[in-house]
Structure formats: C-alpha cells, structure tokens
C-alpha cells in the first residue's frame, strides 16, 4: 500500500504544470529544423538536466511535445533544444521569435550512460534529428576528454541540406581528439562525402569492440540495423544503448501513452541498455 501521509500536496509541485521560459535565441539549422535557447522568465538557473533527458516544450496554445535537450550540461542559465517542425506543436514552436515565451516541464527520463562509459571508447551513432539528443554527450566527453578513450561520431542525414550543426561539425572534424563521420542517404552536386546509410560508416572505422560503449539515436529501423552491425563487429549488446520514442503526454509514467511492453519510455527510458528491451524491440505494433 502506498503511504498517504507526509507533506500536504502543493499545486506548484505538480510535474504536470510547466514554467514559463523566454526565447533568447532562435537558430535555423535546416529548412525544417531549428534550435531554441531558452531562459527562465523568472530569472535564475534553468532546469538541471543530464545528457539524453528531455523536456516537455509547450508551444502556446497548441500543446506540448517531448524534446531532448541538445545543449551542454554546464550552461546553467539556459536550456537548448533542437526541434524538427513536423506536427502542430513543433510548427508552433518554429514560429517563435526572440523574446517570445514557451512553457517547459521536465527534465524527464533516463540519461545516456556517460559515467559508465568512462575509460571506454565512446561511439555515438546518430540518424537525422537523433544527433540532437547525443550532442550533450559529445560536449561532455570533449570537456572531460581524459576520462574517455577514443571518441567517434557517425552521423547519417537524409540529404546534405539536412545536416544539422554544420559549422560545429566542421570544427569537430578539424580536431584530432575525435573522429566525426557524416553520410547522406541522397547526395547532390555540393556533396563530396560518403553516400549511404550510417551502418556503412560503421564498417569503415576501427573498433575495439569489448572496450566500446555505443550510444545510438535515430529512427527505429536505423537503430535496428546499427545494433546488428555493432553485433557483427563484436560489440556486446550490454554496451549498446538506444534512445526509444513513443507518444508521450505526461512525462512521468501516469498517462500510459508511451508504453512499450513493460516499459514506460518516459520514465524507464528513453535511453535503454539494449538487452533490457531486446524482447520488445522491433515487435510489430507493440
């Protein structure tokens, strides 16, 4: 039985009630993707988060959607989110301008295993907008570079014009302490890089499978094939982490929408060590 005693419930404690934030910066990343820098309207520090966690961002008056934090953990004054405009809420968020308000609840969910990965090779595999939830890991590893062995990022975008964080990627690619590879599904005349799915990049890199911690984020089908490719290269499944996605309304496991078998993606995930979800991953219509 759940004990009911204790402090009296307070309406302001509700995880379902958001706080106002102000848009400090709006950056267009691609035709349909943008990055919001948000600061609390009331001043003070923003919500603290860990890489891989998400917030529910409320675009007034359309409603809210779960969006992973894409900025660095050490920016205490702001929250940075990178969003693709695909539905009514994200399209409302896409109309925001500097000085406009957004409502924020969070942070929610289980983060990437940045502590477990210490002392290991870190391999980040991202598909599309999946790069955004992995960017805080990249920032973290670069800031604490000595705690980790090699750092490799494999990133697949649909076309060259869909590539996120272009200028930042160029800077990362110029560094000697990480390897950042980009591929596109469909090329155009401007592109001189690799063409093909992201798993093909995996075939081209050197890997110490037993010392690799792989964090994978992208469409389910992309994560499926990445997982198979990692297995083929000998990476134990217990060292593969995937970030799952389902419909979310509450973020705290009480609305039931995000269930995947026994898991509430919002509170048991979104990041899962692969063996935990192996039995439910890729089950049709689960």
């Amino acid at each position: 039985m759940i004990a009911l005693a204790g402090t009296a419930p307070d309406a302001t404690d509700s995880a379902l009630v958001p706080s106002p934030y102000v848009v400090k910066r709006f950056v267009c990343e691609t035709d349909d993707t943008f990055t919001l820098t948000l600061a609390p309207s009331a001043g003070g520090d923003a919500l603290r988060f860990a890489p891989g966690q998400f917030n529910m961002l409320y675009g007034f008056p359309a409603g809210d959607v779960p969006i992973s934090v894409s900025g660095p953990t050490w920016r205490k004054d702001v929250l940075i989110h990178t969003i693709r405009a695909v539905g009514p809420v994200t399209k409302t968020l896409a109309q925001l301008q500097r000085g406009d308000s957004v409502l924020v609840r969070g942070p929610f969910g289980v983060p990437w295993p940045i502590a477990n990965a210490e002392g290991q090779d870190v391999l980040l595999v991202a598909g599309g907008i999946g790069l955004a939830p992995l960017r805080p890991v990249l920032y973290h590893v670069l800031k604490h570079r000595r705690r980790y062995r090699s750092l490799t990022v494999l990133y697949g975008a649909r076309t060259p014009s869909d590539i996120l964080f272009r200028q930042e990627i160029a800077k990362w690619q110029a560094r000697s302490d990480l390897r950042f590879e980009v591929t596109v599904d469909r090329s155009d005349a401007s592109w001189h890089g690799h063409v093909g799915v992201v798993t093909q990049l995996l075939d081209r890199i050197e890997l110490s499978p037993l010392q690799t911690c792989a964090m994978v984020c992208g469409p389910e089908v992309m994560m499926h094939f990445t997982r198979l490719a990692l297995s083929k290269r000998g990476v134990p499944s217990s060292q593969m982490y995937l970030s799952m996605e389902r419909n979310m309304k509450c973020g705290v496991g009480s609305c039931g929408h995000c269930q995947l078998g026994p898991f509430f993606i919002c509170k048991d995930g979104p990041v899962f060590e692969y063996p935990r979800i192996a039995s439910v991953f890729s089950v049709k219509e689960l």
Partner: peptide
C-alpha cells in the same frame, strides 16, 4: 490542470487549486 494567460509575449501559468 492549469490555465495559461498571455499578455503580450509573456505567459503566466496558474496551477489548478488543490
């Protein structure tokens, strides 16, 4: 669960009473 009031660019959130 709550009411949101917009005044210019500012949003105020009023939680529902307990």
């Amino acid at each position: 669960l709550f009411t949101t009031i917009r005044k210019g660019p500012a949003l105020t959130v009023v939680p529902e009473q307990i």
